[in-house]
Design a protein around this nucleic acid. Structure first.
Lengths: 211, 211
DNA sequence: GTCTATAGCTAGATAGAC
DNA sequence: GTCTATCTAGCTATAGAC
């Protein structure tokens, strides 16, 4: 009886907490996800608490309840990006049929919806207003960049070691060349369309494998 | 005597007009040049008439006298960029010792002060707030991009024709790969320093000449 | 050409009721 | 957790005096 009572109480508490958490998580998540969309389209300074509140049908004050300062939201967006990135990479590492295929899959994921909706890749989206970002966010962005560069470098290294890519090349320089090309192309695609983007990837593949 | 009088009168008018024009041109030019600096650092939405007025020691209203709407200032910045670009290219075309040297000179000019002052190249600076730009400016930016791409393509073509670059490559795809790499690297350099930038250029040169 | 003054709107942020 | 109300500050832009 006492046990049942405790149990019921526990359930109730759990339920209450769960319900509260669910609501909390939902609103919070909706804020983060809409913000991530806006970030990729317009940069961190390109959307406001008013935009978010209108999209979710709540007030600005409610948004501030979840993220008191905008820098808090910015850091949550860094977390979101990191999750997106880690989940993607483990996926590609498991399924890719070759090193080039890994890069292809990565690019395809980063570009998903980007080309049609004039959005940037999640990591480089912060670069739009880089000079105006708080230092705490800059540091996170830098870490995300390094993480990405490390992964691409490892793919290049493996490709060179296994004679998939041409020998005698610096894998890190190749990796940065690849990343810069992709992101530059994505910037251009917003104004010039995707043809040039695909064409550039093809050219890179040719250079990578035959030089 | 009459002649002298007329001459004097003419001089005076000329002087007045010249002085007025000089002042006009100076203020106007100062606005454009400071705006160009800010554009390259923070994007078109990243500076305001208040910033300009403070920098020049005049009021916002005076800035509006020269550029009634901000889109007018934006179009003037497109003109400024076009001038910068055309002057540069004729300079490189005249002095470069090889096609690769042309590209090197172009990159060096575009990067001048950029790397140390965290600025972007003048053409791609508009990309920071691309989705928020008025259509009239977007069109101008697109035209500037095409102009740049045409020039680099011609350099690549000439390099291939003269056996300076590896044969059997699509000069336009090479050109876009080059441009994307440069601009992507410049974005990165704002946060990661210039080493990666120079390293990437070296890698590109290797790929271009030996593939 | 430059100024003062002002308009209307939006930004990020906070206090306190419910 | 959401609301109303409010704050300070910034934004683009205009009217009209000097």
């Amino acid at each position: 009886m006492q046990l049942y009572y405790l149990h019921a109480d526990y359930q109730m508490n759990t339920k209450t907490v769960t319900a509260a958490n669910t609501k909390l998580i939902n609103t919070r998540q909706q804020i983060v996800e809409y913000s991530a969309d806006m970030l990729r389209a317009n940069g961190f300074e390109g959307f406001s608490y008013l935009d978010i509140s209108r999209h979710l049908g709540i007030t600005k004050a409610s948004v501030h309840h979840h993220f008191p300062k905008k820098v808090d939201l910015g850091l949550a967006l860094c977390d979101w990006t990191q999750d997106w990135f880690e989940q993607g990479l483990s996926h590609f590492d498991a399924r890719a049929t070759s090193n080039w295929n890994k890069l292809e899959r990565y690019v395809r994921a980063a570009m998903k919806h980007s080309l049609n909706e004039h959005k940037l890749c999640p990591i480089s989206a912060f670069y739009s207003d880089l000079n105006k970002l708080p230092d705490s966010i800059k540091e996170r962005v830098k870490a995300l960049d390094d993480y990405e560069l490390d992964w691409v470098t490892a793919v290049m290294q493996d490709g060179i070691d296994n004679d998939e890519f041409a020998p005698n090349q610096d894998p890190r320089a190749l990796a940065s060349l690849f990343i810069f090309s992709c992101k530059g192309a994505l910037y251009y695609a917003r104004l010039h369309g995707k043809d040039l983007f695909h064409q550039t990837m093809k050219q890179f593949e040719h250079l990578l494998k035959s030089s």
